[in-house]
Design a binder for these strands. Structure first.
Length: 560
RNA sequence: GCUCUCGUAGUUCAACGGAUAGAACAGUCCCGUCCUAAGGGAUUGAUGUGGGUUCAAUUCCUGCCGAGGGCACCA
């Protein structure tokens, strides 16, 4: 998108929905017609005359300007513009699509947030895919991104798992961290059940919770240290598969003390005592908010207090311009309360907090809950999708280790894409078949298009065709070129709106246009004078695809 | 009850107030290929409902109907 200035009125140029309506268009005549008391088409015609007078008849890149429809002004670009874009892509390669709008800014993204002693489920997979993609999209806009993961290593959930572990220790047959972590997750579900059903169990679990917090029981400490270590190791394996490297790991156990201190310092002015607990009555400051407990009646800090400590810690560790926290929507309301409390105590920090919510993974039948044990773990989903892809490539002539790597990369692509293809706010109805789809609107489709491009380029070079961006005689601009040059502006929009799905939508459009073109024309043809340019265009599409996939956190394999 | 989201083809998703509402999957029908068929082409099919604002509404406001989240000691 761009702007044009005429008589002090800024004209916003946008891309029409259809290529037949030009490459850029404006509806300025429609909006101004009333003010000018004329008919929009006449006004549009007048504007076109003015532009032509100011720039002459022969513009370097604009081939034609026309009035269309109710009074739209459409601009058509010359083939030269597109061939120069292709050259630009090839020159910039890995940097194509980047901008520097946020250069000098430091932003922390907090995402994934699995809890030790609980399963890493597909909700965490969702958070990770979204957080990682946003991080990358921001990096492409010049931001110094700091990746953070906040994990709840204390609290009732830990006590629930330990309650069972005390009675049913892990079997010796489970020796990998991931197997042990799975077992611990099951213990957690059982413990939750016991907590709800059995008064005695509830009492003991509350007691364990306190002991974990105080570190006062040797036996519990031992189980705790082991469980925490094992689940964290299992998480680490998953991060590796997903391609995330965190700069910071924050733990609830580490920020709780600071949170408590903050609450204590502000008792009276912000927090008050009610029914033995320390609460913040947010509705006093904003009627839409509600009261939340910060220190419970047993004297233990709740998540809200820990969040306070976490926020303060982040700004102490790094000089941040913004701290972005991504969580599921169910946290939206309580996060507003925490933010309100922060704004009253530390207004300068509150200004730099941003909470982004994503929807939840749910079954068609309802919500998933690790308390009830009906969750799909990230581990099982990753290995299942890997298995499906592996099966599919069995007959390809790749080395065994290549097949394994490919199954991994394609499986992750399928999962991530199924999450990132839609706006992040909505829930995702979990469907295994769809989450590992490799046809049509899918991650593997993008990867497949990319690999075809790579092998095509190789074949072309073998046939002695050297890619060349010089516009050949008689070249007719393709849809592929018309989409290609929009990559940088798409990325700009994606970061401004925190919307990775724009990247996904764009890539599918580009890949689809390329595949259609590919199916209808021979690209690497030594007898075709257009071939060198076609090769250059193909290579440029490959660059855009690879860069775009990177923004989604998806690898682009060379063959598949 | 209060409050916040959201209702688009059979299904899962798009659409920065604009032109003929885009895809994918499923269905029906073509193309075994020459550069990887995880592909390409064709075809059927949708804005929950009643008002309002606007030259123009899927988009903004509002009534109703429907779905989901949140509303004190879980995170």
């Amino acid at each position: 998108m761009g702007t044009l200035l005429i008589d002090g009125d800024q004209i916003i140029l946008e891309h029409p929905t259809e290529f037949t309506h030009g490459d850029y268009s404006t509806n300025i005549a429609l909006t101004l017609a009333k003010r000018e008391k004329t008919n929009p088409r006449d006004l549009a015609q007048k504007i076109v005359e003015m532009i032509k007078q100011a720039h002459g008849d022969h513009h370097e890149y604009v081939s034609d300007i026309e009035v269309a429809g109710a009074g739209f002004i459409n601009f058509y670009l010359k083939p030269k513009f597109f061939s120069e874009t292709v050259a630009h892509v090839l020159e910039n390669e890995k940097d194509f699509g980047k901008n520097k709008i946020l250069s000098g800014k430091k932003i922390m993204f907090e995402y994934t947030q699995p809890n030790p002693f609980k399963p890493f489920h597909i909700g965490h997979l969702m958070s990770n895919a979204i957080g990682e993609s946003l991080s990358r999209i921001f990096e492409w806009s010049g931001t110094h991104v700091v990746r953070a993961n906040y994990q709840g290593d204390v609290g009732p959930h830990v006590a629930k798992a330990i309650y069972i572990l005390l009675r049913e220790p892990v079997s010796k047959e489970l020796y990998t961290p991931s197997q042990q972590a799975t077992y611990i997750g099951e213990c957690y579900a059982k413990g939750s059940q016991a907590y709800d059903d059995d008064v005695e169990a509830k009492k003991e679990i509350d007691e364990i919770n306190r002991k974990v917090y105080e570190k006062s029981d040797a036996k519990i400490n031992e189980i705790y240290d082991w469980g925490r270590r094992v689940t964290l190791e299992a998480f680490e394996e998953i991060y590796k598969m997903l391609g995330t490297n965190f700069d910071y790991y924050f733990f609830e156990s580490e920020v709780a003390k600071l949170g408590e201190k903050i609450v204590e310092e502000h008792i009276g002015e912000i927090f008050e005592t009610s029914d033995g607990a320390t609460v913040f009555k947010a509705e006093k400051f904003d009627p839409k908010l509600h009261t939340r407990v910060f220190i419970n009646s047993k004297g233990l800090p709740t998540y809200e207090t820990k969040e306070l400590g976490l926020t303060k810690t982040k700004f102490e560790k790094e000089k941040l311009d913004l701290s972005v926290v991504t969580t599921a929507v169910e946290q939206a309301e309580y996060m507003k309360v925490v933010e309100k409390a922060v704004s009253l105590m530390y207004p300068e920090i509150a200004q730099k907090m941003k909470h982004i919510t994503h929807g939840m993974m749910r079954f068609a039948t309802g919500k998933m809950s690790s308390r009830k044990g009906n969750v799909v773990t990230g581990e099982s989903l990753l290995s299942d999708s890997r298995a499906v892809i592996f099966e599919k490539i069995q007959d390809r002539e790749f080395e065994e280790h290549e097949k394994e790597h490919l199954a991994q990369v394609v499986g992750v692509a399928a999962l991530k894409y199924s999450i990132l293809r839609q706006a992040i706010g909505g829930d995702i109805i979990y469907d295994f078949e769809k989450s590992i789809s490799f046809e049509g609107d899918s991650g593997p489709y993008l990867q497949y298009t990319y690999t075809r491009i790579q092998s095509l380029l190789k074949k072309g070079i073998d046939r002695g065709i050297i890619p060349n961006t010089t516009l050949p005689e008689g070249w007719v601009t393709t849809d592929v070129e018309k989409i290609l040059y929009r990559f940088p502006e798409m990325n700009e929009r994606a970061f401004k709106e925190y919307a990775p799905h724009y990247v996904a939508t764009y890539l599918i459009e580009l890949a689809r246009a390329f595949s259609t073109w590919y199916g209808n024309t021979k690209i690497a043809d030594e007898n075709d004078l257009h071939s060198p340019y076609k090769m250059a265009l193909t290579e440029a599409v490959g660059v855009a695809l690879r860069n775009g996939l990177w923004l989604l956190g998806i690898e682009a394999p060379h063959k598949m």
